[in-house]
Design a protein around this nucleic acid. Structure first.
Lengths: 218, 218
DNA sequence: CGGGGGCTTGACGCACCTCAAGACAAGTGG
DNA sequence: CCACTTGTCTTGAGGTGCGTCAAGCCCCCG
């Protein structure tokens, strides 16, 4: 689990949150709810729960996923500071949401307010777009294309800096990309061997050759 | 391309359209636009087009897809009579939409009406749910699980009858399920050999053993 | 220092892809 | 009505990328 200083957290949350707020006035207007602190692995909601709340990540990271009967897992999305999740079904949740590491979230209860749906639509459309994007990755890309696209997306969402956090485990990455943990590990090692990325620690990445990474992502 | 009598078309469109209409008053209220008839393969919109219209299928079928630079294609969804599509991005389309066979669609232009977003939200959420469901299939299921789930979904959307149309080609199915055309063909042949389904013609399926098919779909 | 979870690395196998040929169906023109 | 074409689908043989199984490593923490 990566450790952050309070300053780091504030910085990340501040920079990433802004664009989301611009489109979703209710996140800013409403008397901002308290931030709830969650431990690593804590459940935010489960399959079957009633969905009447949307959440905004303040710090940390969240995974949203489904399970098959035999234990296979597909992570449908990760959520980083500033991002909003929790509207993945109209009535009952069809997914689980968990904190990946120590994480703070703000919960916005959905009243039957008329304006709510206006605020929610852009979020739903953005979620739809990301889900469809990910379909392309899962359906048609090779392991190295998947990893390259994943790293670029993460870098972008953390401000586009050359060095960024990898808050999730290799298993989480595998279950997001439709691969096994071994393939994820081997592919990252190959990227590192080619000098495309550096891995100063298990949960931290340095992008050294953006061009090659983008080329790999197709 | 399967041929329908006018009566068949009316029946299918009528039965399937109702649930959608119940949630989306604007589809019923607005002076219903003319049905546009499209030839097989006709483009409805292309990547980059402005997205200011949603469409409802009246008869026929539609595929929505993305292309990679090297020609790989991922079909993100199929749309059957009664179903609504076209809101796959907020500003510009990131996908192509084409008629799979001779198809009729009604186009609903989106004004900046306040009520529009209320009507659109349930559609967007349903689209999101289907996209996430499909992520699980693409990321974590085997070829036969994919085909079984696909056939059950198609049967369900056409009224749950034991016999139903397969409006799309094997290539379309492959590009939807993230497989090759050969794997689709082989898997269907295996289902047929096991007596799980019948294939009276290329574009028609009879489900003979629902239980086994559901079991295969996991 | 010893234990344990997460990660890496290796050897091997298999499900699916690739390449290639042939079957079938539907249309086309003589 | 029949040769011929064309596109789609099926079937086969062989290859490969990723999964599976199994050690072993590393880092953290007690």
């Amino acid at each position: 689990m990566p450790s952050h200083s309070a300053a780091e957290i504030a910085l990340v949350a501040g920079t990433v949150a802004r664009p989301a707020l611009a489109e979703t006035p209710f996140l800013a207007q409403a008397r901002a709810p308290q931030t709830t602190i969650l431990a690593e692995g804590a459940e935010i909601y489960a399959q079957g729960d009633k969905a009447q709340t949307v959440y905004q990540v303040v710090f940390g990271a969240v995974r949203v996923f489904r399970l098959l009967a035999d234990g296979r897992r597909q992570i449908s999305s990760f959520h980083l500071p500033g991002e909003v999740f929790g509207f993945d079904s109209s009535a009952n949740h069809r997914f689980f949401a968990e904190a990946i590491c120590a994480t703070g979230v703000r919960a916005f209860r959905l009243s039957s307010d008329v304006d709510m749906s206006r605020d929610l639509l852009p979020l739903a459309l953005r979620g739809l777009a990301k889900a469809q994007e990910h379909q392309l990755v899962l359906g048609r890309q090779s392991a190295s294309e998947r990893l390259a696209a994943f790293l670029l997306d993460l870098a972008d969402r953390q401000g586009g800096l050359e060095q960024f956090d990898l808050p999730m485990s290799r298993l989480d990455i595998a279950d997001f990309l439709g691969l096994t943990i071994e393939t994820v590990s081997r592919t990252l090692t190959r990227f590192k061997a080619k000098g495309i990325i550096g891995l100063p620690s298990l949960r931290r990445v340095i992008v050294r050759k953006w061009g090659q990474l983008q080329q790999l992502a197709e």
